[in-house]
Structures are given as structure tokens and as C-alpha cells.
């Protein structure tokens, strides 16, 4: 499913965060978004998933308009900001909790997904005791565990070591080969260039393709 962003503007008070943003993200590809902190990348992602209502313009996923024909995208995996989990529970329990909302949580499937992101042996360790990198890996696990068609990943490499970044690169390339559409932001231009089929840059609310 292609994603079309058309004439999106968004203000917070007097600050114009998105300025007439237009973009087309083709299905089955990895699309990268780079830009400085506060440039509007995350707000654009929020508009795409229906968490923030733009002042003007619309987002279409396939033929459906977000916020009008559907409240949130139907098949979505998401990381937005720092992954937030219930810190007193294990990673496995957190994933089971989230998966129970839409489907039947199967322990074996969740363990498989955790292995896939490099968290095979966390045992009974609560998420509150995870390192930043482990939380990030768990965040990626929750995004991919329901096999969604669309992945929106805001800074997925934050806190990961070089091996972790390489692992997630491989995983995302595999998901692309399976036909998933992936939107990704990063501060690290080299990550984006190595991974993405298209790259856009956000500068003070203005989006342009590089």
C-alpha cells in the first residue's frame, strides 16, 4: 500500500511545525527521513498514523484517508520516541500484553520474535532493568511481532551498539524483501543511506527528497 501525504500543515501555537508537506512513499520499500531534532519528523509520522490531526491536508494509505476512512492504519507496527513498556514486568509479558489486544498471544511466537531482534535470554528480568539497547530491541520486537504491512520506526537505532545496528539493518532488509513498507528516521545519515530506497530531508517543517 502506497502512502500519500498531501499538503500537510501543522501548527503548535504560533510555531509552524509542518509546512505544506507533500510526499509519496511507495509500497515494499524502505523510506528514510533525516533531519535535525525538532525539524518535524516525528510530527509527520504522527500525522501519518493518525495520532496527530493536521491543520490542513490529508494522508492516504492505499485508498483510505487516515482519520476519515479509518482512525488508525489497519496493519501497523510502530516505534515512536523512546519505547515505553511497563517496567515492573518482563519483556515477554509486555509483548504478550500488547499482542493480546488484537490477537491471541502465543508464547512460542513471542520468544521467536525476541530471538529475531537479539533478545533470546532475558528470562525473568523486568524491563526496568534492561539497558537502553535492550529496550530498543524490545521496541522493534513489538513493532514486528504481528507481521504488519506498514512499519513506522522513529529513531530505531538509538542506543544500539554497532552489532545491534547491523542486526536491525539485516532484519529490515528481510522485511522489505517480504513486501513491507518501512518508514524510518535517524540522525545518522550513513544508516539511512545504507538502508533506504528513498531519502527525504526535513528542514524546519519543509520536506524535500534527496
Amino acid at each position: 500500500m502506497d502512502i500519500c501525504v498531501e499538503n500537510i500543515c501543522k501548527h503548535y501555537g504560533k510555531q509552524e511545525v509542518l509546512k505544506n508537506v507533500n510526499a509519496h512513499f511507495a509500497s515494499g520499500q524502505i523510506h528514510g527521513l533525516i533531519g535535525r531534532n525538532g525539524s518535524g519528523k516525528t510530527v509527520l509520522f504522527r500525522c501519518i498514523i493518525g495520532y496527530t490531526k493536521p491543520d490542513t491536508g490529508e494522508v492516504r494509505i492505499g485508498t483510505k484517508r487516515v482519520g476519515i476512512d479509518m482512525r488508525y492504519p489497519d496493519s501497523l507496527g510502530l516505534i515512536l520516541d523512546t519505547p515505553g513498556f511497563l517496567p515492573q514486568f518482563t519483556g515477554q509479558f509486555n509483548l504478550e500484553l500488547l499482542m493480546s489486544i488484537r490477537g491471541r498471544p502465543e508464547k512460542s511466537h513471542i520468544q521467536k520474535v525476541m530471538c529475531r531482534v537479539g533478545l533470546p535470554d532475558t528470562g525473568r528480568k523486568p524491563v526496568g532493568k534492561y539497558s537502553m539497547g535492550m529496550r530498543q530491541r524490545l521496541g522493534i520486537a513489538q513493532a514486528i511481532m504481528e507481521d504488519p504491512h506498514l512499519l513506522i520506526l522513529d529513531e530505531p537505532f538509538n542506543g544500539l551498539d554497532s552489532q545491534g545496528v547491523a542486526d536491525i539493518h539485516s532484519l529490515l532488509k528481510l522485511l522489505r524483501s517480504q513486501g513491507k513498507t518501512i518508514l524510518i528516521t535517524s540522525h545518522y545519515v550513513q544508516d539511512i543511506e545504507a538502508l533506504c530506497d528513498t531519502v527525504h530531508e526535513m528542514q524546519a517543517g519543509i520536506l524535500q527528497q534527496i
Partner: peptide
């Protein structure tokens, strides 16, 4: 504090609407 923090971002779209989230 837990559900309204960043966890909300993960759970809300899975519920499909704010009303369903609130019901649960």
C-alpha cells in the same frame, strides 16, 4: 502513569479507537 506514557503509543492503534481503549 504507565499506560498514559509512551506505552499509549503502542497500545492505542492496536485497540483501533480511543473508545475501545477506554473500554478495556
Amino acid at each position: 502513569r504507565s499506560v498514559m506514557g509512551k506505552t499509549l503509543m503502542f497500545s492505542l492503534y492496536r485497540h483501533g479507537s480511543k473508545a475501545k481503549w477506554m473500554t478495556s
